[in-house]
Amino acid sequence: MQLMTFEEVITYLHKKSRPYSLLMGNGFSMAYDREIFSYNALYDFLTSRDDLLINKLFNVIKTKNFELVMQQLDTTLALLEAFGSDGELQQDIILASKKLKDGLLTSIHQLHPEHVYKIPEKKAIACAEFLTLFLNSGGHVFSTNYDMLLYWVMMRQHIENSIDGFGREIDNIDEVIQGGIAEYSGLVWGPNVVKQNVHYLHGALHIFDTGVDIEKEQYDQSNFLIEKIKKRLERENYPIFVTAGNGDEKLSHIRHNRYLSHCFDLLSELDGSLVTFGFNFGEYDEHIIEAINKATHAQNKTPPKLWGIYIGVYSEADAEHILSIQSKFHAKVKLFDAKTANVWGN
């Protein structure tokens, strides 16, 4: 099968003089380090912790896919509720679900590179150049990954036109009006939301919902970001993190969080073209396909409207999978060889 190269895709889109956006999945992180960021790596780490409950879950359901385990637990709980089973058994299922979520967060934390400067400079530069292609076109960057690789690259390389919507607000506005010195908040989502072009569709380890504000942990010289997150986890303060199984459950989680809902709405309103990297459009990604199709269904041919989607594939099997579901997309679909993108300068 003849595939386009990444350079051919970008050259073609650039000539169209329309914005082009990027959607990244787990393949973005796996391209950095497959041993750390694959489902299997997280599974191996979790099961090596000798947690009997978590090990039993994986053995019974016979999968290494966390999302599938979560889906099975949710289905079991719904059946128990429907048949009026005793509350103790339902609580056991709820506990198992919470334990799996906690274990997943802990595993990602412990497997994650220690801090931003552990990323080799060559890789950080190459990734920044890759991301800048989309941002400079007026497009957006969307990620479904929980890890902080994207955030770290943007911090380390100081990508000036990357805006995640977070900023600082004045906490003592009444005192300032009376001539006092301004005191600023931590990084909260809102001050730069109008210009936001970087979106974590399923949340991320560094983004927290306090119930009042959406906050972002920030790296500094005295406290590495991972250490700050660890302290939050110890206080049972968890990141915004979509762990539900199927597309409907993920969308329900998204709609119940104002940050996630905003990011999802922007995906649904895309203008120009969309390029995907490391995103396989699996059976649990129907909500993403629906958002893309909504962006395609503009009422006329004036912006905003999504005109085409360019999907990166790594193998013939990947290509065959996309071709088998091509009819689900309402926009024009083209395939390119994801290996030619060279995101991390390998």
Score class of each variant (00 low, 15 high):
38 S>C: 08
87 G>S: 15
133 L>K: 11
1 M>T: 07
184 Y>H: 03
252 S>T: 11
235 R>N: 14
245 G>L: 00
171 D>K: 11
327 S>A: 10
182 A>E: 13
220 D>W: 13
56 K>M: 10
238 Y>K: 08
262 H>K: 11
52 L>C: 11
274 L>Q: 02
95 L>P: 07
244 A>S: 12
271 D>W: 02
14 H>D: 12
246 N>S: 04
74 D>N: 04
93 I>A: 02
223 N>E: 13
97 S>K: 14
254 I>S: 04
127 C>H: 02
311 I>T: 03
320 E>Y: 02
334 K>Y: 04
250 K>R: 08
214 I>L: 03
229 I>M: 12
293 N>T: 10
96 A>F: 08
126 A>R: 03
34 R>Y: 10
185 S>K: 09
15 K>A: 04
228 K>E: 01
301 K>R: 14
327 S>D: 12
270 L>V: 09
66 F>P: 00
280 N>I: 07
122 K>R: 15
132 T>A: 12
295 A>M: 12
236 E>R: 15
65 N>M: 01
263 C>L: 09
157 Q>L: 14
61 I>E: 07
315 S>I: 05
16 K>R: 14
169 E>Y: 11
82 A>T: 15
333 V>E: 05
308 G>Q: 10
212 V>P: 11
135 L>K: 05
46 L>D: 00
254 I>A: 05
306 L>K: 04
126 A>F: 03
62 K>L: 10
280 N>H: 07
126 A>G: 05
277 F>D: 03
29 S>A: 01
257 N>K: 07
322 I>P: 00
277 F>R: 02
173 I>T: 13
205 L>Q: 12
8 E>R: 12
21 S>M: 08
78 A>L: 15
120 P>R: 13
18 R>H: 12
141 V>D: 01
157 Q>C: 13
122 K>Q: 15
303 P>W: 07
86 D>K: 15
30 M>I: 06
156 R>L: 13
202 H>V: 04
9 V>M: 00
189 W>I: 07
19 P>C: 06
13 L>W: 00
122 K>N: 13
33 D>R: 14
206 H>I: 08
12 Y>T: 09
257 N>E: 01
141 V>N: 00
285 D>G: 02
152 W>E: 04
245 G>Y: 00
